[in-house]
C-alpha cells in the first residue's frame, strides 16, 4: 500500500524554499555550482537552478551540472555491473566554488560519501553543501544535509518512491511498505 507524503505542490514549495535557503547561506549566487546526482537529483538540481536564476538575475547561466558517483561506490562488488551516467561540470569548474550537491533521498549516506570522493577528483571547492528532497534517516556514515525538503522518519523495510514529471510522468513522493528498502 503506497501512502503519498508529498504532492506536486508540496514538492514545488520545498524546492522554492531550498533555493532561497541556498541563496541566503551563500549570500547570493556568486561562485555557486549546483551538482545533481543522477538520475532524479539532476532533475531537482535543474529546477533549483531555474528558481535561483529567477530570484537572482545576476546568477550565472551555467550554474547546474551533474555528478555521477557510480565509479566511486563502495558496493559495486555486491551488485551486477551498473551503467554509469553522465558527469557534466559547469564551464567555470568547481575550484574555489561553493558546490551544492542535490539528491532525491538521503538514506545511508553512502552515495554522498561517493560523491565527495568524486568531487575531490574534479577539483577543490571552497565548500560542499548537501540539499535533498527527502531525508529518511538511517545514516550509516557521519553525513547530514544542509537543506532538506522534508524529514520523513521511516522504517528500513519501507520504500520511499520519488516520482518526477520529467521522467516518471507523475509528481509525488510516496511511501511503500515493501520488503527490500530503496536507496
Amino acid at each position: 500500500m503506497a501512502r503519498i507524503v508529498l504532492q506536486n505542490s508540496d514538492i514545488t514549495r520545498a524546492l522554492t524554499r531550498i533555493s532561497h535557503e541556498i541563496l541566503e547561506s551563500n549570500r547570493g549566487a556568486d561562485d555557486l555550482v549546483i551538482l545533481g546526482i543522477p538520475t532524479r537529483g539532476v532533475i531537482l538540481a535543474e529546477r533549483i537552478g531555474a528558481q535561483i536564476r529567477q530570484i537572482e538575475a545576476s546568477a550565472p547561466v551555467d550554474l547546474v551540472g551533474s555528478l555521477d558517483v557510480t565509479m566511486y561506490r563502495d558496493d559495486l562488488a555486491h551488485h551486477p555491473t551498473r551503467a554509469p551516467q553522465r558527469t557534466r561540470v559547469p564551464a567555470g569548474g568547481i575550484d574555489g566554488k561553493t558546490v551544492v550537491l542535490v539528491d532525491d533521498v538521503l538514506y545511508s549516506g553512502r552515495t554522498i560519501r561517493a560523491a565527495l570522493d568524486a568531487i575531490g577528483d574534479l577539483g577543490r571547492p571552497r565548500a560542499v553543501r548537501l540539499a535533498v528532497l527527502v531525508d529518511r534517516g538511517h545514516r550509516e556514515l557521519p553525513i547530514r544535509a544542509d537543506f532538506v525538503g522534508k524529514n520523513l522518519p521511516s522504517s528500513t523495510d519501507e520504500r520511499i518512491n520519488v516520482r518526477l514529471s520529467e521522467i516518471d510522468g507523475s509528481e509525488e513522493v510516496s511511501i511503500d511498505l515493501a520488503t527490500g528498502a530503496g536507496a
Binding site: 565509479m71 566511486y72 575531490g120 577528483d121 574534479l122
Partner: peptide
C-alpha cells in the same frame, strides 16, 4: 552500445586533472 556509452564516460575522465578512478 552499452560499452560504447560507458567509454564516453571514461573518455571524459581522460580530460580531467585527476585521470584516475578508484573503481
Amino acid at each position: 552500445i552499452g560499452l560504447l556509452d560507458i567509454a564516453e564516460d571514461m573518455s571524459e575522465v581522460q580530460n580531467r586533472e585527476v585521470k584516475k578512478l578508484p573503481t
